[in-house]
């Protein structure tokens, strides 16, 4: 029973990994930029919630109403003012810039909040669970998984049907041709980055809620997990992030059955195995990485 339990928990954990990977996947899919600051930005968003809860008395969930739009706006500006310039310099420049950001954020957070864990209270949501067939499932992981499915379906629909979603796919295909159609590709890029930042903000707050709080350097773990999720699932597919997340989540929880110390290591080894034997990911078709 404990094995089945581990698999169920792993699948639900995969929902969280999928949410945290979406932003990385979108930014790479549309702009071919790998955002090394992805994890640090998640944690920044979680600290945004911490700050709002402290200063305004908002709850964790209602703080999302502020944090998500603010992070989206930050993404828009960062793309327009900084990353767009970096892309025009060299292939390495956007990597160096985002890595620089990933160093600045946690150190600034230490200075502003100390390196202690900051709590993100959610009432009793984190501890409540529902039981079915002898397996107790946490309400929070269940909710997270539900959010992941709805979010991915929504984004997929947006990209397939909405005008700006269509322009994002067109920009990913051929940004120069898009400009000849009267569309400023830089605006499209900034919109895509804004969406990516909105999802990573949500992921960051969910991370804090799951863990019971956030610490400044947590982003160094979350960026790697998000990245592994993208690669395992296969690049260029949003549903792939859910598959990648589930594979990674189940691997980790099964690893945890052996020893509480090894889930991260086992997950990383799973990632390396995928890299060695299925380099295009589980759902991947073409070589893009």
């Amino acid at each position: 029973m404990s094995w089945l339990n581990a698999v169920v928990q792993g699948v639900l954990l995969g929902g969280f990994f999928a949410i945290s990977a979406l932003g990385l996947s979108i930014v790479f899919g549309v702009m071919r930029i790998v955002n090394l600051a992805h994890g640090a930005l998640m944690i920044l968003a979680a600290y945004g919630s911490v700050l709002l809860i402290e200063r305004t008395g908002l709850g964790t969930w209602s703080s999302l109403l502020v944090v998500v739009p603010v992070m989206a706006a930050l993404g828009y500006l960062l793309q327009r003012l900084v990353l767009q310039r970096a892309v025009s310099i060299s292939e390495l420049a956007p990597l160096m810039v985002t890595f620089g950001i990933s160093i600045m954020i946690p150190n600034a957070l230490v200075e502003l909040f100390t390196s202690d864990v900051q709590a993100l209270p959610t009432g009793n949501l984190a501890t409540r669970s529902v039981s079915a067939g002898g397996i107790a499932v946490g309400l929070l992981p269940l909710l997270t998984f539900g959010i992941a499915v709805v979010l991915i379906a929504g984004l997929q629909l947006f990209l397939a049907r909405a005008r700006s979603g269509r322009l994002m796919r067109a920009a990913a295909d051929d940004s120069q041709a898009l400009r000849l159609m009267g569309v400023d590709n830089r605006v499209v890029y900034a919109q895509a980055t804004a969406i990516a930042f909105a999802t990573l903000a949500l992921a960051g707050v969910l991370f804090g809620v799951r863990q019971g709080g956030v610490a400044p350097f947590d982003g160094q773990v979350t960026v790697l997990l998000a990245f592994e999720t993208v690669i395992i699932g296969g690049l260029g597919s949003l549903w792939g992030t859910l598959v990648g997340g589930i594979v990674l989540g189940v691997t980790q929880t099964l690893g945890g059955e052996f020893s509480p110390e090894v889930p991260l290591l086992v997950g990383n080894l799973m990632f390396l195995a995928v890299l060695a034997f299925r380099p295009n990911g589980i759902l991947g078709r073409e070589t893009r990485a």
Partner: peptide, 14 residues
């Protein structure tokens, strides 16, 4: 197996 930015994070995982 990885290129560009994904090579960067891949080495970090390793």
């Amino acid at each position: 197996r990885l290129r560009g930015g994904y090579f960067a994070i891949g080495t970090w995982v390793i």
